[in-house]
Design a protein around this nucleic acid. Structure first.
Lengths: 206, 206
DNA sequence: GTTGCGATGTATCGCACCGATACATCGTTC
DNA sequence: GAACGATGTATCGGTGCGATACATCGCAAC
């Protein structure tokens, strides 16, 4: 799941790990607190091993290779998505399985909807809705035959959960209606979304 | 975290794994879909190793030890909490750290509030509120200086997350007010919560 | 002036938990 | 009689997290 998010961000611009984490935190702030380095770096390693991303030369140029003997001088490592990585990103984007309907998978997919085709968007939104409805029904069941002798606090928790489910279903309904009406939010102000086609082709080094 | 939940349920009654999972699913249904066996059994193993729980004899009595040669005849294994386990449960219940303010820790603690002392309840509720408020502020920041050039879908996600935060803070406020007024939900109908002090002292075997 | 602190930055380790899978029994339905 | 779904125990690989370590830089306090 993290792979999708990282490829998505690196698709927009090359970055080093620290920056990546910050961007992930704001982009996915609604669905998870903060990405741990214990997840980030191993995932970067994995992506690198798969050939989806590569290391770029550091801003200081050759400096990094020059001073390995003492203190090892670890410079910032800038990661860049490869052509295969872009393909992989598209593949992951279009992939809809059960994990696209659960958190955090749903949230991550949703965060990249601007680069997802309309059919996939709809499939994911409907899949998610179904899931949340099931969850909602489960909670309703427990609450109705509350003979389940659950204490008041536990019941309160279920009530709050049920409320959240109902709210999310309504939210999803709205989004689905928007999608169907062919009026998705897409670009509202002035946001050329992924490609940044104009200007510099290569990232300026500092 | 699972340890707390399992000890809590076994505190109420001895059970085998399958039943435990079902009960966990309904008790914690509001905060997580279903507990995986890949979590449950290792945790039971861990609890057993720590001496917090023990295996009870299976209903069929000696049958289990008799027929190991062929087909190994795996019977149901009933787990029972020990005296040390009850102590451990109290200890975990009273323990308030950062993980008691995050999901899923918060939800699990909350689910056992009926057996938590009032001071701890209040501390957890306030800690949680603080956390959610921080999260809310973070989302507000991102949304206000939306110059963060996030696309419309990502913004919609943040908006939904912000809404959920605001709602939860209000919910927590209410709960905290209730706690302070000394009128916690506790036992509303007729639910003698943990001890089941009357009737059978030893669990009747089927 | 140095000292100490917070931000930037890379990285690993152990652990908790999940999803998939395997295997076995039992009762009911066709 | 066999096919299926519920009950039941258990493991395996993988993902992600929290804690921790280490290093640099700029700036504010003393």
């Amino acid at each position: 799941m993290l792979e999708l998010a990282i490829l998505g961000l690196l698709h927009e611009a090359s970055m080093h790990g620290y920056e990546l984490r910050k961007q992930l935190t704001t982009k996915l702030g609604a669905i998870r607190a903060a990405i741990s380095y214990g997840s980030l770096y191993p995932t970067l390693r994995r992506l690198q091993a798969g050939g989806w991303i590569t290391e770029e030369a550091t801003p200081q140029g050759a400096a990094r290779a020059e001073i390995p003997p003492l203190t090892s001088r670890r410079g910032r490592v800038v990661y860049k998505i490869t052509a295969e990585g872009k393909e992989r990103f598209q593949e992951l984007l279009a992939q809809t399985g059960p994990e696209s309907y659960e958190e955090p998978g749903f949230g991550i997919h949703f965060a990249f909807f601007a680069r997802t085709d309309a059919a996939t968007r709809l499939r994911i939104l409907e899949g998610r809705r179904r899931r949340v409805e099931e969850r909602r029904e489960g909670l309703r069941d427990v609450l109705s035959r509350a003979a389940e002798r659950l204490d008041a606090y536990t019941l309160e928790l279920q009530r709050h959960g049920l409320d959240a489910c109902e709210r999310e279903v309504r939210w999803l309904e709205e989004l689905i209606a928007n999608e169907r009406s062919g009026r998705p939010p897409q670009i509202d102000q002035a946001n050329p979304p992924p490609g940044r086609s104009s200007q510099t082709e290569t990232e300026e080094p500092r």
